[in-house]
Design a protein around this nucleic acid. Sequence first.
DNA 1: TCACACCTGAAAGATATTTTCGGCTCGGTG
DNA 2: CACCGAGCCGAAAATATCTTTCAGGTGTGA
Lengths: 324, 324
Amino acid sequence: MKEIFGQGSGRVSGRGSGRGSGHGSAAPRPAAGIAPPAPAALAAKVRTLVPSMTRSMQRVAEAVANDPAGCAALTVTGLAELTGTSEATVVRTARLLGYPGYRDLRLALAGLAAQQQSGRAPAITTDIAVDDPIADVVAKLAHDEQQTLADTAAGLDTVQLGAAVTALAAARRTDVYGVGASGLVAQDLTQKLLRIGLMAHAHSDPHLAVTNAVQLRAGDVAIAITHSGSTGDVIEPLRVAFEHGATTVAITGRPNGAVAQYADHVLTTSTARESELRPAAMSSRTSQLLVVDCLFVGVAQRTYETAAPALSASYEALAHRHRR
Amino acid sequence: MKEIFGQGSGRVSGRGSGRGSGHGSAAPRPAAGIAPPAPAALAAKVRTLVPSMTRSMQRVAEAVANDPAGCAALTVTGLAELTGTSEATVVRTARLLGYPGYRDLRLALAGLAAQQQSGRAPAITTDIAVDDPIADVVAKLAHDEQQTLADTAAGLDTVQLGAAVTALAAARRTDVYGVGASGLVAQDLTQKLLRIGLMAHAHSDPHLAVTNAVQLRAGDVAIAITHSGSTGDVIEPLRVAFEHGATTVAITGRPNGAVAQYADHVLTTSTARESELRPAAMSSRTSQLLVVDCLFVGVAQRTYETAAPALSASYEALAHRHRR
DNA sequence: TCACACCTGAAAGATATTTTCGGCTCGGTG
DNA sequence: CACCGAGCCGAAAATATCTTTCAGGTGTGA
């Protein structure tokens, strides 16, 4: 039972200034009514109340104010030992600070520590430096990629995207061109389309890509993925496909680049700033993948009747490849 | 809806064991292995681990994730009643999330609540529906992937990451295993490492992977990438590499999966909610790529003297492949 | 259909927190 | 200078909370 602390003993006495009688310094009255314990304004409360505390309690309050995180990790016994006092004193201090007991003070302490922790934003706006600690690298990379995603989503032309989806959903066959890092994105798209029953193929060999592009005709789709918009090895097969009447799509960071002239639909990826340790390939890949995912989901929606069972089937088929 | 405080059965316990006194200053520190509990990366951890939880534990994890502040105010018994489970289950869940016990989970919860309080409002994310307009698809996908990135960054163990980076930077040779969507990530990592002058190779053919793994020895590094953590085709070569003395790294969404038993260092990727139109492969790929990028940048930092010129050189070399 | 493995919760066991209680110091007073 | 009283302080008892153990139930695979 949580008894009411009330009890007048609160007194001050302390040495010297015993302004005790003054009702003013009166207890914070925690128990009375709805006194919400301090959320994070704890440090201030400590400073306010310290003068009216007894010596032992001051030691406890001080420890708590100086190292919230550390104290939050201690039990009441541990904190008592650390401050050279007793458990009872620790509890009394917690009460004075407005909490029902040490348990709740500890919870508030943990919250305070977490806030302080998060307050220290690792300045994620800067470039990655050679001597950045590994934790900063993680934070910066994650932040940059999040930014890239936001930029891409904001800059994507949904009309063009919709048109591309429509073409894909109806295509007899789809070829995807990409070399280097974009080649992996091309493969990713291909894998996905295959999983929902479409005929898709990725080409990273420019010669084979051109050779196959010749086979395309109206109703087929060709997709070129190039960040720079000027990768000849990718533009060439797209041109061939375009001239053979296929519907052509370009996924590029330069919507005005050379690749665009042979593309019926251009999907623009974002271009984030790059640096020595963060090559452009990194953010362009993130951006391209988002576009590719959008294409995939769009097509899956349009062909839901066949796509859904196909997805389930491929999922089932994989289950057997897993060890227990 | 979590209202309804079940009401108490009162449950008078406590009789008897009046032992209390032994105030043993005994170490309150169970020293939970080498895994420091998460500070505020808890939400991410919950999402990552939920799939591998049992029903009862899922209920607890869900309650905790949905209302950190509320749960922090509850005792183990209260939370058990709220979720309709037992104290034992609550403790088990806390353990699974990486804490020594419920007490510490509660502390973390208080911290999380404090952060949410002062921080931003968590955006809600709904599933992608068949009839969502294309613009919504873009927005939802972008949001989900951003969430995945945040979760991954929050849940990544920087100590393990640092160890993996160190091993990679010093490796004579590095083999990367991945099949399916993870195979593309493996290739991405390989491409990057090659660009800074390291000897790396990606294997997606399980037979060839094992064949090559036999060649590895101490000082070499083997990396397995598998979302499920139970992909036999990837575990097998890692096991062989492990037994031949290579330093082994696992990049997986199930840090407790089968793959972990042969991994010197485990890097955990996040697991986002999947749905029919948003296969798990999508977010796992995003998560894996972030981890891979972190590895790459980390290694580039450590080997800056050779990495920087190598990066410039490969950039120069590509310039000639671009059309005007 | 049976056996097995594994989840689950009740209660016992261990810790941690709160309360009680008596000693002690300190300052005032005769 | 000795005595007295007030109230701080900590040791230990009492209580609340957390952790572990163990037996029963449930679903799964052979």
